[in-house]
Design a protein around this nucleic acid. Sequence first.
RNA 1: GGGCGGAUAGCUCAGUGGCUAGAGCACCUGCCUUACACGCAGGGGGUCGCAGGUUCAAGUCCUGCUCCGCCCA
Length: 759
Amino acid sequence: MPDTMPTAYDPELVEDRWYGYWLEQDVMRAEIDPEREPFCIVIPPPNVTGTLHMGHALDNTIQDLLIRRRRMQGYAALWLPGTDHAGIATQNVVEKMLAEEGRSRHDLGRERFVELTWQVSQDHKSQILGQLRRLGCSPDWSRERFTLDEGLSRAVREAFVTLYEQGLIYRGARMINWCPRCATGLSDLEVEHADEQGHLWHIRYPEPDGGPGVVVATTRPETMLGDTAVAAHPDDERYAGLIGRTVILPLMDREIPVVADDAVDPEFGTGAVKVTPAHDPNDLEIAVRHNLPHVVVINDDGAMTEEAGDYAGLSRFEAREQIVAALEERGLLVGIEDYRHSVGHCSRCHTILEPLVSEQWFVAMEPLAREGLRAVDEGLVRFVPERWTRVYRDWLEDIEDWCISRQLWWGHALPAWWCESCGQWTVSRDDPTECLACGATGLVPSPDVLDTWFSSGLWPFSTLGWPDETPELEYWYPTSVLVTAYDIIFFWVARMIMDAMHFTGKQPFDVVFIHGLVRTAEGRKMSKSLGTGVDPLELMDKYGADALRFALMQMITHGQDLRYSEDRVVGARNFCNKLWNVTRFVVMNLEDAPDERIDLASADLSLADRWILSRHHRLLALVARELEAYNIAQAADALYEHIWSEFCDWYVELAKSDLYEPESPERRAVVQEVLRTVLEGFLPAPHHALHHRGAVAPARRAHRPDRPGRLPRGRRAMARRRGRGAHGRVAGHRDGASSPARGAHTAAVAARAGDHHRR
RNA sequence: GGGCGGAUAGCUCAGUGGCUAGAGCACCUGCCUUACACGCAGGGGGUCGCAGGUUCAAGUCCUGCUCCGCCCA
């Protein structure tokens, strides 16, 4: 046996092979079973924008740990895999590909662009799923979903139409964030604010009679062309005399009023501000209060409109330069100061956004937010760590309506049709042939698609068959745990909770386990474009999937970002090697052990025997407790400590004399029994290896019911011995984790240990 | 401006009022001892961010402050 076990652990020899074996044995499939308790995790669907990064490796390692543990405990444990079409993100990826060839999406046209994006996304999807397999993940592959597949698209329509019928989706002209490059509206969440060094330009707006007028300060002089007023605080004595009078808007020679408004901060700039209702949300509010007209001077594409007079057609940046120059020439530029201010950028392409008034579709969030708050208030959803509850709550308590329409090509079509006859919208579950308002035919489908997060919000129940009342939904929903990073609490977690409460009347999951982001050793963000990304595939090739997984598990802190360094994976790989070798040692020394187990409770135990058994039971209890509390790193560290420092360094060393020169055959047999008992505690597989030397039928032990009231749990053979494949053939068991090959060293060790204690 | 998190060994981090504050990595010394050199035995290394307070006892609880990071507006 030892001659077929190399002295150094070699993941390549076992990982693929065992994954294939699990597939062959169908151990990942979850089936509805009224005799068992359901347990369900739906995967946070990776975006089909590319391949998996370290964050995914972390997220999915945790999920695999949780699902394997429950599977081994006898639950009907479903881990539902899938991917997200990721609307704007994927569209951007494909547009960048085209840009490299000097083409744009418009060169292809909508139909061909969407076709291309399908190809690209399918390509990414298969890579992603392959990476999950490489990582050793054990979802039920037969239930894989994609946000754009037929069933989920139907769920999206159902949700949209229902909200519309309930008056919670409406269409209207509102000021929204507009990305001139993507040429679409965005939600508030898709805006990335960054402090940038800019200028505060002080511009004089003279009085019609040539009087000095007022000096306003602005960071965006190009918008002045659309000014329809100047405003000052009502208590600001500097401008008391000007309120109610007019000034001349330079360059446009338009007479505009000076108004008093509480919203003006007297401390900012000169205390007088220009009012551009069409291009600034705060100015729009002032305009509403003072009944001011709107003048649109910047277009959808970021160029100046006809309303911009001499500047029409220029880009907003060129216009700024020329306007500043023109003002200076006319002596109206009173001063320029350096000024750091926050600028909104498109979270996908980083273009500076324009606030524009635009006709879009919105979800009225307030009623939904109330339901979302109820979910946490009543304890239906529990955040782990608990402090994220407040982050979630604060956002919901102060929520704005959600702009859900996107002027993109990649995504779910908005189920709305425009009637050219009466100008009304028809919103419908099925493609309508005539206008619901006037009955006219010739409806024009909306060209818009939905915000990608609209479909993600339905994910926990749409993947289980909603809106149909499927057996899966009935059995596994609400799901058990959601595992995700804190950066998508608003985008995704909150919306899932609100949608679930609204559409299903139940929480989408009982627990949200929030983890941090994987950062570089220096604490920087990992990013492919910055060259700071680390490819999990490369690490797995170098050290094995288990080493990566165990390293990640050890690094998990509650909600803290974790700093990755390769040293950690090396350490975990060494631990894998330790496990391999102690297994080797035990296997070698149990060649002649009897199949009959010794009852340690009545055996004549040495001090060392009693010590290690006591430490071992303490470890099993500790791991179980830590995992129930989602203290994954603590569980991993406890295992590491116990296996290495207690079992290997002390017990195995002490056992050698009893094995090599025993006082009596009985003594030797007892030590052998202790060795296998402890080893099985964290590595169930040797159980088989030790008992299948001869002709013992694997099935007998594999199906040993080891807990009354539960269905039999399988045990996995240690079938790595070449030429003895039969020993590893354990048919029909449902245990997907107990192989020393992969699961054993990471998730399954922890899961197994915890499970052991539960019995 | 509001909120959250962090500050403990050179680095990354545990530490849930109670023994001499721990681990991994790194470093130093000695070992290829028949499970493992991806290893073994041993060693050095700390003003627990600062200042107060509570307590028989504080890295841990309270107050204030400093610095770093993140989120929101």
